[in-house]
């Protein structure tokens, strides 16, 4: 198992190669690399062939619809799912889901899951010897409103160790799952908290080799969201990849 120092060297070498490629006129990479050897589990799980260009058609130009039949309003509050108050820093996380043209993604499903304040998931595979909180499961859902806004009340998750390399720790994060207005906008990502000392050490965060693209995953502390004697507040906006339907429809009319 490699040490953190050896891991840091691998991460730095890839980062430096990217920086020099960009300064030589190479393209900015806004998504994670699929082939990112510092994240060991990716070695056998990334495609080796280039992704094949496809113009979306049929169902790909539409997304599934979700409604209040699917998601109850209480599911957006992860702190009230049990009999008592969960342990940790109560926090509100809110923001907007936009498409690549800046339009709000309305009445669409957002799902989150996360560790508890001690960095422990309610998952049989999580062996981290931190306490399970009987008052916190760490799963939430909501629908965006007409402005594309989502809003969750939760507990700030703790960092947790994993087995990628010796003394590997994930920065605190909330897993997010979003749908757009088209199938091709589907995305799953992770939201991070500002100023985490583990950012530089984490191969999953660093798999996004562009520093600005990484920073877009970091929420902003927002005192206007913070609630008096109740919860801290963070804002995190999400932009999905560009839509196609509005581009494709005029073409079809001419066909």
């Amino acid at each position: 198992m490699v040490t953190q120092a050896e891991m840091d060297g691998e991460i730095a070498a890839i980062g430096a190669a990217y920086e020099s490629a960009v300064s030589a006129g190479g393209a900015e990479e806004t998504q994670p690399r699929l082939d990112y050897p510092p994240y060991r589990s990716s070695l056998l799980r990334h495609p080796t062939k280039d992704l094949h260009h496809a113009d979306p058609e049929g169902v790909e130009l539409w997304a599934p619809a979700f409604g209040h039949r699917d998601v109850g309003t209480l599911e957006a509050d992860l702190t009230i799912q049990h009999g008592g108050e969960p342990i940790g820093e109560r926090t509100v996380v809110t923001g907007r889901v936009l498409d690549g043209d800046g339009r709000p993604v309305r009445r669409q499903l957002v799902e989150i899951w996360q560790a508890n304040a001690g960095g422990r998931y309610i998952h049989k595979r999580d062996q981290h010897p931190a306490a399970i909180d009987p008052n916190f499961t760490g799963v939430g859902r909501c629908l965006t409103d007409d402005d594309g806004t989502y809003r969750f009340t939760t507990i700030k998750p703790g960092p947790y160790p994993w087995k990628n390399h010796r003394n590997a720790w994930r920065p605190a994060h909330i897993h997010f799952s979003m749908f757009g207005t088209e199938f091709t906008q589907r995305m799953v990502t992770q939201m991070y908290f500002p100023g985490d000392p583990l950012f530089a050490l984490d191969p999953i965060y660093q798999s996004i080799v562009d520093p600005r693209a990484r920073e877009r995953l970091v929420a902003t502390y927002d005192h206007d969201i913070t609630q008096h004697e109740w919860a801290t507040g963070y804002r995190w906006d999400i932009v999905l990849t560009g839509a196609h339907r509005t581009l494709m429809e005029p073409e079809e009319e001419h066909a």
């Binding site: 994670p32 877009r216 999400i238 999905l240």
Partner: peptide, 11 residues
Amino acid sequence: TPTAGQTVGPF
């Protein structure tokens, strides 16, 4: 700019 994706992870 589109938000970057991340792995769904083990949990």
